[in-house]
Design a protein around this nucleic acid. Structure first.
Lengths: 351, 351
DNA sequence: AAAAATGATGTTATCGTTCTCACGCAGCGG
DNA sequence: CCGCTGCGTGAGAACGATAACATCATTTTT
């Protein structure tokens, strides 16, 4: 009853540094040091504290620590969606580097919408992250403002840009489109097409559009006719959209012999549509995807695609963040899209 | 120079409630109330504060708020991996409910390892979440202890159990296996097989094992010969493992006419192997998957599978958490695995 | 051997918010 | 006209940790 004298706020009941200190016979500050800078306390003290920690089942309160030290050790991560292996791999790559270093990734998804991204950024900034990673370089005015004002390390990824908010670690989507066009052209294909790209301005796959643009420009540069673009994708991209686009292409544009899909997801759907219609791949139709999702390697025929190594990208991002946290300067980084050749692309056999 | 008089700790430079209050001509407490309980301040005060918030670009510090109120509004979420659409959908479902209610999901992945899960739980508990969601009911002793000791709401999912730590919202994996066996048996298949299941004790797909057990038991109960189990999967499950397993099955056990794969990922690999070898599906071989991943609907033939509605499960979890946070009592919830019929399963045509 | 540097620990203030309590003022019944 | 209730507001403590400084004992330097 007479347990607490002043009794303004009741504690949570969980052990604190004070409890550990009391049990070990040292001050809270010594406990703090024992836990975060073990080499700054004497060996005997250290073991006393460690024993007390085990005995009490003490788990430090990082929120309190963050408030006091002004370093939350949280890294915010805004993805378009989790339900895409590439983004999931990116997030796992980042986590694998950050977690062992004592940083906690905070993952959110914006559903490809700039508005939702803004909302997400606002919410996440309230957790006072030490760094912020965003997929993409297109943001709302307010998003950019908030990120700038926060003064923390900001990393934009999955793209390249000339004027990043802070740091940019990604690949050129335009370049990916160029690689696609160059490959298909080198196989002797004359009439190229691309599938992907949204008509709905609100839910736009910004990066997919850049790949399309790169594809178009390179095709033109190579002296081939302007490629057809079948735009009927929506984010999130689903296989069905690839199937629909391929069906339309086969029906309306029989002269096309090679197709670049802005995502392996669409490419797979397109491939299945070819199967359904008995269209030989790559005999009658060459098919090139993007992303190197795991299905690309396993479907029959194996899907030629363009890989961007998301997990490795994640690790690079993690490392750069850690370097920044140690006070070192860091620059951006560009990753080169790599053509992965499987069976779905082959020489043009048409007349 | 004479900016701060005492000057022990320097602030971060970001605006605080104090700044907002000074600008609005009210106390910090009034700012706090204006932001979290707008109906407890007068309309004029409210608008003054809101104006000041906009003018300063103030973003509340939730960490400080958490420390003071002992409610972090963080919900921790431990998944085996992000790179699995079902878990990603689960996470997105949870987020969709929690975020608008002011709760922040904190996602981590344990790579199917109980040790890593323990590590993750320890790290996440240091952020003082208000609730903890875990995939699975098998945890290390220390994990369970920490969760119990934390005293927060704990939800186990993706399984059913008789003695949950706190609440269990999931489906019975055993039941899913039974559904699989019943379906294949009903089609007249006599020699069944299952693919999946790991030999490596350390990286065990615990839930896959339960599906296998349910499959085995139901097969026996239906009076059929004991099913073959091809165990050569490893987590994370990749398509290649399904292909390998199917190849082995076709080579060594030609009498088998129907196969249950513990994951659509494996089922897809197996299907592709059938294509490669010219084995007709479902004519010669019926194939049933689990999970209803999006590829299942798009491959040719469409993959029959067992669906567990992960996104909906996530939303249910989110709602139960919110109810608990409002102080209401809540019980667990069982989700029924549902058979999704497509083209990959058909009647036994063998002699 | 005296002075200075080093090392281990404790004390106090502080981070930015919310909780608790107190205060002043308006309305209201007796 | 007095006390009572209720509303809006403010003052100060508290949450659990760390930074900065202070202290004391010990070692190193010259």
């Amino acid at each position: 009853m007479a347990e607490r004298q002043t009794g303004r706020k009741a504690g949570t009941g969980r052990p604190t540094m004070k409890d550990v200190g009391a049990l070990a016979g040292v001050s809270v500050m010594t406990v703090s040091r024992a836990l975060s800078m073990p080499d700054r306390v004497s060996p005997e003290t250290l073991s006393k504290v460690q024993r007390a920690v085990l005995q009490t089942g003490y788990v430090p309160d990082q929120n309190a620590g963050a408030l006091s030290s002004k370093r939350s050790r949280i890294v915010a991560l805004s993805l378009p969606t989790l339900a895409n292996v590439n983004f999931a791999d990116l997030a796992e790559g980042i986590s694998e580097v950050l977690l062992p270093a004592g940083y906690q990734p905070l993952i959110g998804h914006s559903g490809h919408s700039l508005e939702k991204e803004e909302e997400l950024v606002r919410i996440m900034l309230a957790r006072r992250p030490d760094a912020f990673v965003l997929v993409g370089t297109a943001h709302s005015r307010e998003t950019s403002r908030m990120l700038h004002a926060s003064g923390i390390t900001v990393i934009e990824t999955w793209e390249q840009t000339d004027n990043p908010i802070d740091l940019c670690i990604g690949f050129s989507n335009r370049r990916a489109g160029e690689v696609a066009a160059e490959h298909l052209a080198s196989l002797g294909h004359l009439r190229l097409a691309a599938i992907g790209g949204s008509l709905d301005a609100d839910l736009k796959d910004y990066r997919g559009e850049q790949r399309l643009r790169g594809f178009q420009e390179a095709t033109r540069r190579l002296g081939l006719p302007t490629p057809l673009i079948i735009r009927q994708a929506q984010v999130p991209i689903r296989h069905g959209q690839g199937a629909d686009s391929m069906a339309r292409l086969l029906r309306e544009h029989p002269e096309v012999s090679a197709v670049f899909a802005i995502s392996d997801t669409m490419a797979f759907g397109a491939l299945m549509e070819c199967h359904r219609q008995g269209v030989a791949v790559p005999g009658r139709m060459s098919l090139l995807g993007f992303g190197d999702f795991d299905i690309a390697a396993q479907c029959v025929p194996g899907l030629s695609t363009i890989a961007v190594a998301p997990r490795e990208m994640g690790r690079i991002i993690g490392e750069r963040i850690l370097r920044r946290m140690d006070g070192a300067e860091t620059s951006g980084h560009e990753i080169e899209p790599v053509l992965v050749l499987r069976e779905s692309t082959g020489a043009n056999t048409g007349s």
